[in-house]
Design a protein around this nucleic acid. Structure first.
Lengths: 335, 335
DNA sequence: ATGAAAGCGCTAACAT
DNA sequence: ATGTTAGCGCTTTCAT
């Protein structure tokens, strides 16, 4: 059915290995046969069978990306999927396919990821840290299989490669910006305490603020209602009444805004706001919120790039933190 | 390096084809050799090489999903990625891998999708309709390659298979619900006019409303600001002043809410609101908004299922519309 | 610069 | 019920 190297070889009158050489750009080929082969390939509308090619070469020309499924929280999936798209783009430019796979393992079956690796379907893996259990981690390490974590693992002792956003730096940027604008008592409004990055954001705040004031972290569940209540309490606390908030995400910021309206506190005059993330609300609030933007595209791209390096040659583990960007808007424009 | 069927065959003292038969669950195998082979496989920690297997079987055991890249609008990507996860889950249960690929074609290269298909890397394709140009469509049809559109194509004449959400039905549900609650003059607040589903939502509204009133569609750009202005105008129009709105998405609803606060109109007493989509804001607004929810998981799952049917045996094209669900909340609770 | 032949690891048609 | 053999379509020695 399909056109093969043999067909081209017959048509041109050479051996199939010669065709292969031409198609793979080997140098020691006479200009004449090269042209003839290429012409024939075009005429016959030849497309290499990548499966056969991969079998012969002993590679799969694919990487696997493990989906962030256990964390099915809609919001974080959004950021993850942005990175996923960027990974695909990078992979394409390196000539790799991207196979996605959930980490979910049903019943007694082997985990789909283990299958992906052991069955030689992928040459490398991009994984959210929590998706790898101890067993799988062992397997990968023992066979020296290339993988990169998309996000910093909680157990920081591990000698593994990862790429993550510099959440702590984001907090520091926010703190610096708020002080620069004249705010004096800065409160951190926390988010869903289960998410790893929330801890990093809080720690970053705590570290950065110490030079100026006692840290003031108010925890919330990450929902607007929860943030509304928590921020209300904070503003009723007359002793340490904040004049600025750093919100852990757009939803807590949304809740905070409700409280401020209720208390008739003016933003940015009486209260300044910086929020983490520039989605889905920051720019649409009234006033638009100064935001710590994270580059999820870059995250995916760097993650993929790091993986390809590791696939091409073994190397010691690397870690990379990507800078956040402060987008200044009305909510911190104190006169 | 890796363990092969040969290794097992040698160890057990049978031929590799026998091993293959056992591993593939053929019936005419003596219980004894079956056990010996399976034991040996386990002992040697055998994993089949899927590339070799695919080459021999002439299939790839993979499907391709084309990424919604040209439409990089963050919001719609969110819904798409939800479907993507569901596709992966379905594929896994059918024993297929999912390869993602952007449709973006750089320079003179062939499109990545065409490569995916022609190089036998995938057995079927799930595609957002716009991602397929006329040429590629021809290629696929001529070779009878199985594919399913994720979303209804704009050119409705095409005899192709697709799965989509029943947007028009959603509008009809909203209209019926609002009338039932006693609202009388229902206005549709449109969204980004470039999105295909927006047209469907508007048409659904227009059709459903005709029994009751003259259709009243107010267009917006899909941003909160735009929706705020447009809804303000609508409410100033004394002749046909609406007492209810159907919003094309959560962002237009957000804009509308600003206007209503400004005009001090009470929701749900003076104005009722139904919004399309239950993300990211509908449940967090004050009051929480009645929403037309769409099941993006189901969308992905059905799309995949349809594709697998078509891969297994050729069949006439099918189309499927998935029902929307009305989630009733405070914003339509007229006393 | 090119041909011949072996082989990647598996499955399947044909024997027995 | 099992062994033999021939591929799947490509790459890659090893010759010449």
């Amino acid at each position: 059915m399909a056109v093969t190297v043999q067909d081209i070889a017959r048509k041109v009158g050479v051996n199939s290995s010669t065709v292969s050489r031409v198609l793979n750009g080997y140098r020691n080929i006479s200009e004449e046969t090269r042209r003839k082969v290429l012409d024939a390939a075009r005429e016959l509308n030849y497309h290499p069978n990548s499966i056969a090619r991969n079998l012969a070469k002993g590679s799969s020309a694919s990487i696997g990306v493990v989906l962030d499924a256990s964390n099915s929280e809609e919001f974080s999936n959004f950021f993850f999927s942005r990175s996923l798209f960027a990974i695909e783009r990078a992979a394409q430019s390196y000539g790799y396919n991207v196979i996605i796979s959930s980490s979910y393992k049903e019943g007694e079956k082997r985990s789909p990821i283990e299958d992906l690796v052991m069955q030689k379907q992928v040459d490398g893996l991009i994984v959210p840290p929590f998706a790898l259990d101890a067993h799988l981690l062992d397997v990968l390490n023992n066979m020296n299989f290339p993988y990169v974590f998309l996000g910093q693992p909680a157990r920081s002792g591990l000698q593994v490669s990862w790429v993550d956003l510099h959440n702590a730096q984001g907090s520091a940027q926010a703190v610096a910006h708020l002080y620069e604008r004249g705010y004096q008592r800065i409160c951190f409004l926390g988010g869903n305490p289960d998410a790893g990055f929330v801890k990093q954001r809080i720690t970053g705040y705590t570290d950065a603020i110490e030079a100026h004031q006692k840290p003031y972290v108010v925890n919330t569940k990450g929902t607007p209602e929860s943030a509304e209540k928590a921020s209300y309490q904070a503003l009723k606390n007359m002793e340490e009444k904040p004049d600025a908030f750093i919100c852990c995400d757009n939803y807590t910021a949304f809740g905070l805004m409700s409280t401020l309206k209720r208390l008739q506190l003016n933003v940015p005059k009486q209260v300044g706001i910086v929020t983490f993330d520039n989605f889905p609300l920051a720019e649409f609030m009234d006033p638009p919120l100064t935001a710590i933007d994270i580059d999820t595209d870059l995250l995916g791209e760097q993650c993929a790039t790091m993986l390809f390096q590791r696939i091409e040659k073994p190397m010691p583990s690397q870690q990379m933190l990507l800078s956040t960007t402060l987008i200044k808007r009305k909510s911190t424009e104190r006169a």
